[in-house]
């Protein structure tokens, strides 16, 4: 890692804007991705969810579902939808630099 800040234009992303490599993620990139998706400011509550999701993914290979988030992240489901109006599981994953939740096919 260098001191130079990585910019969103320098990292590889898929057609929907998810990072190709979770290891390239930085908090600054997260802020930029949030802005692209209509969230101008990431509050502590946003970060709580984003970091919980990211850590869980790095630990287990699974991104938690809405229900897991509601049970474990400390943020109730209703609030999750206020924080990430377009769908918390997908949007928080995108901002946190981890892959989109997907099925087996």
């Amino acid at each position: 890692m260098t001191e130079t800040q990585i910019e969103l234009t320098q990292v590889e992303r898929d057609a929907e804007g998810f990072l190709a490599d979770p290891a390239q993620w930085t908090r600054e990139l997260g802020v930029e991705i949030a802005r692209e998706n209509g969230i101008d400011e990431l509050t502590d509550r946003h970060w709580l969810v984003i970091e919980f999701m990211r850590n869980r993914y790095l630990e287990t290979g699974n991104a938690p579902s809405i229900r897991s988030l509601g049970k474990e992240s400390g943020v109730p489901v209703k609030e999750l939808y206020q924080l990430f109006p377009k769908g918390p599981a997908k949007l928080a994953a995108k901002i946190g630099g981890i892959p989109k939740p997907h099925g087996c096919i």
């Binding site: 599981a89 997908k90 989109k100 939740p101 997907h102 099925g103 087996c104 096919i105």
Partner: peptide, 17 residues
Amino acid sequence: STPLDGCFTRPIASKHL
């Protein structure tokens, strides 16, 4: 109806199915 963003969420399966 699904909580995911499609019935087929993997790009290759989605293209074929």
